[in-house]
Computed example of a mutant assay.
Amino acid sequence: MLADCEITSGSSTHGLIAFDDPGRFPERDALKISIVITVYNYERYVGLAIDSALNQTRPADEIVVVDDGSIDGSRQIIAGYGDRIRAIFQANQGNIAAFEVGYREATGDVLLFLDADDILMPTAVENVAAHWREGLSKVQFNLELIDGAGTPLGRSFCAFPTSYTSQDVHEEFIRSGTYIWPVMSGNAYSREFLRQVIPLNPPVGYDGALNTIAPLYGDVVTVQAILGQYRLHGRNISRNDAQGRAQRFPDFPRQIGFRVAEFDILKAHCDRKSVHVQSARPIDNEIVFINYRLASRKLGLRYVAQEMDTSSSLLRRGIWLALTETTQWRTAASHIVWFTALLLSPSWFAYRLIMLRFNRAELLRPLLRFGSVIRRKHA
Rank of each mutant, 00 (worst) to 15 (best):
Q56M: 07
S185Q: 00
R281P: 00
F339L: 13
R360G: 02
D219Y: 05
T38Q: 10
V373W: 10
Q93D: 09
A91D: 15
L145M: 12
L216K: 00
S70L: 02
L48C: 04
F349I: 14
A159P: 04
K267E: 14
R195V: 01
R272I: 01
E362I: 13
L54M: 12
L112F: 04
R272V: 09
L232Y: 07
W329E: 13
L114F: 02
A53L: 00
A332H: 03
G244V: 00
G186I: 02
S313T: 12
F193V: 06
S279P: 03
K32H: 14
A91S: 13
L321M: 05
T57L: 11
E192V: 11
A91P: 08
P182Y: 01
P182W: 08
R375W: 03
A97V: 08
L136Q: 11
I283E: 12
E362W: 13
I336M: 15
E27D: 14
D51N: 14
L232I: 15
Y45Q: 13
P202W: 01
M121V: 07
E100R: 10
G244L: 02
G257L: 06
G47Y: 01
G186F: 00
F25W: 10
A79R: 14
M1V: 12
D264P: 01
I290P: 11
G208L: 11
L111G: 08
H378E: 11
I50K: 00
S74A: 13
N41T: 03
A305G: 04
N55T: 09
V337S: 13
F157M: 13
Y189G: 04
A149K: 14
G108L: 03
Q56L: 05
D251P: 10
W348Q: 09
T212S: 09
L299V: 00
S9T: 12
D68T: 07
I88H: 08
E171P: 02
S190M: 00
Q167M: 10
I283N: 03
R272H: 12
W348G: 05
E262R: 06
S312H: 13
G80V: 04
P122Y: 03
R104D: 13
